[in-house]
Structures are given as C-alpha cells and as structure tokens.
C-alpha cells in the first residue's frame, strides 16, 4: 500500500491517522504541506523518525524546495521528483490518499 498525505501535520491530523493505520512494509509519500513533517526540528519529526522502523517514508522534492525546506530534510526520508511519484504509484497495487 502507498499512503499519500498532503496536509500539514501541525494543522490537521491526517498524518497521525495515516501512521496509525499504515501496516509494516507500506510506503508513505508526503506531498504539499505535509512535507514540513519530514524536516528537522518540526513537531512531527519524532513521529516520522519512529515510523521509519516499519515504513518507507518519501517526500516530494519540488514541494520541499518550493517551501524553502530542502536543506532540512530528515535523514532516512527519500526525496522523489514527479517521475518518482508516478513510479511509487505504479509499484504499489493500492494507494490511499489521506485528504
């Protein structure tokens, strides 16, 4: 399963719900305002770091750059471009968007 989150973790609880429901071996892709969660010093950083034990965490590079956060990405989070986004979608048989 590929989980896609696009809401800021400091404004909505989408990421929290996603991490609670995502099963071991799943992938989580952070896009739009959700990318802030995967930056150093953010309140959600600890949740992302502990989730990395069971989940593969990705973030959309162009969204990081647009927000001026590309230099603060947490270790272990993989940045993908739009091509990588498409690859993730095709690699996983199912997708869930946490709107």
């Amino acid at each position: 399963m590929l989980h896609i989150v696009n809401k800021s973790a400091t404004e909505r609880n989408s990421l929290e719900s996603c991490l609670r429901m995502a099963t071991k071996g799943s992938a989580v892709l952070l896009i739009e305002d959700a990318v802030y969660a995967a930056t150093q010093g953010s309140e959600a950083a600890a949740k992302i770091q502990s989730a990395m034990a069971d989940l593969q965490i990705y973030a959309l590079g162009p969204d990081m750059e647009a927000r001026g956060m590309a230099g603060r990405v947490l270790d272990g989070v993989k940045l993908v471009d739009y091509g990588g986004f498409v690859d993730l979608v095709t690699e996983h048989s199912t997708c869930q968007s946490w709107l």
């Binding site: 162009p62 750059e65 647009a66 927000r67 001026g68 590309a70 230099g71």
Partner: peptide
C-alpha cells in the same frame, strides 16, 4: 512557514 528564506517554486 510563509516567511522562510530560500523558497524555489519553479518545480511546482
């Protein structure tokens, strides 16, 4: 976050 330096929005 609106005031962060170094944004590059070309990609989006």
């Amino acid at each position: 976050y609106e005031l962060i330096k170094g944004m590059n929005t070309k990609g989006i």
